[in-house]
């Protein structure tokens, strides 16, 4: 997988750990971004204040005043 089998053992080990490290940082940043974008809407769905369809079609207000302050 990932085509690193041809490398020497030490270099391959370093690349493997590097891949895990990079994936971890990318996931941290990526999921953080997703949480910032979709987190408030998801919370409203879980609270029962909006239906999932309303969120998908952007009919769910994102703040108490209906999103006017954004």
């Amino acid at each position: 997988m990932f085509g690193i089998e041809s490398l020497g053992p030490s270099l391959q080990a370093a690349v493997l750990v590097g891949v895990v490290l990079v994936e971890a940082v990318v996931l941290y940043v990526g999921y953080g971004g997703l949480e910032a974008v979709f987190g408030p809407s998801l919370k409203r769905v879980l609270q029962g204040r909006c239906a999932l369809a309303d969120v998908v079609f952007r009919r769910c207000p994102t703040a108490e005043n209906g999103g006017g302050n954004r």
Partner: peptide
């Protein structure tokens, strides 16, 4: 790193798990 040197780290396990 120590286990990876002996080829004991399988990315097809680690990547999706992570």
């Amino acid at each position: 790193l120590l286990y990876a040197q002996s080829g004991a780290v399988d990315l097809s396990i680690v990547v999706p798990l992570l």
